[in-house]
Design a protein around this nucleic acid. Structure first.
Length: 277
DNA sequence: GTTCAGGTGGGAT
DNA sequence: ATCCCACCTGAA
């Protein structure tokens, strides 16, 4: 099996895995991860100093390098952090290997519609059901079975009641209506990446089940609009606790979303650590 | 039994 | 505009 090796410069798969931006990236063995993006499958092995991508040179340069945003230097983002901002400095040091992925728009729309009032394991489970029921079965180079992410056209054919049987709950209607709207071309997904952040966000919010928070997640994790700063209940609490005078969005103009990820990951992992004490 | 988990839509003010 | 609350489900 052909593989590509890259140094781990501000790149940690486990951190990306735990940052909640991707629901189809999983650790399958020690150091080994698998990710499915749209129709594509990739096996990854990450050592302390380097990462092996099990794919061809072409697949790496044309897709995965871009997908993991490996052309961008995240050290620059981290170095720009206000040294007097102890909380953000600690958060960034803790999650320094996080990268903002460039995921598929439709996949993020569905994933974050399902994410509301839901936890990560359950979101993953719901996505797994959708892929197994409506995606296409494929095999990895090593023969592992996986399922592609179902298209809007395919999901628009599914009854709302069927989604409810699959335990999507009240999100069933949102998904049904959004899949239909996208399949009918009411919102043209291919146009979104060319739009400014605010415009793309407004366009996304035309879809049923997509409010400000979900739209920001889609802007950040699919459209790579780094201005997007999704505020969920977790981030809200951190802002109230650590930034009573307001978060310095001006200072991080153009990449506040990267800071959001450091904060989110830091808060999420510390929350778990606290519970285990 | 209650609350909460990475919110949103719809209706009342 | 802003507030309020119902909404599916499963786990603590």
């Amino acid at each position: 099996m052909h593989k590509i090796e890259v140094p781990n410069h501000h790149f940690r798969i486990d951190q990306i895995c735990g940052s909640g931006q991707c629901f189809r990236l999983d650790r399958v063995e020690d150091r080994i991860y698998e990710v499915i993006a749209g129709e594509k499958y990739l096996k990854i092995k990450q050592y302390p100093d380097k990462t092996s991508f099990y794919c061809t040179e072409k697949e790496y340069t044309c897709f995965w390098k871009m997908y993991f945003d490996l052309d961008v230097c995240y050290e620059t983002y981290i170095e720009s952090i206000d040294k007097g901002d102890t909380y953000l400095s600690k958060a960034a040091a803790f999650g320094e290997g996080i990268r903002i992925l460039r995921q598929d728009v439709w996949e993020m729309i569905v994933s974050f519609i399902l994410s509301q009032q839901n936890n990560i394991p359950r979101i993953k489970q719901l996505i797994r059901i959708l892929c197994e029921q409506c995606g296409e079965e494929r095999r990895s180079p090593e023969g592992r079975v996986y399922y592609t992410f179902p298209t809007a056209e395919r999901l628009s054919e599914v009854e709302e009641s069927t989604f409810r049987e699959w335990k999507l709950g009240y999100r069933s209607r949102y998904l049904q209506e959004t899949a239909r709207a996208v399949a009918e071309g009411k919102v043209r997904l291919s146009d979104l990446s060319g739009m400014e952040y605010e415009t793309a966000k407004k366009e996304l919010m035309k879809l049923c089940g997509i409010g400000a928070k979900v739209a920001d997640c889609i802007c950040l994790f699919a459209l790579h609009k780094l201005d997007a700063f999704p505020v969920d209940t977790h981030i809200q609490k951190v802002l109230e606790r650590e930034y009573k005078k307001g978060f310095p969005f001006e200072r991080y103009r153009g990449y506040a979303g990267v800071m959001q990820q450091y904060i989110f990951y830091y808060d999420l992992k510390n929350g778990v650590a606290m519970k285990e004490m």
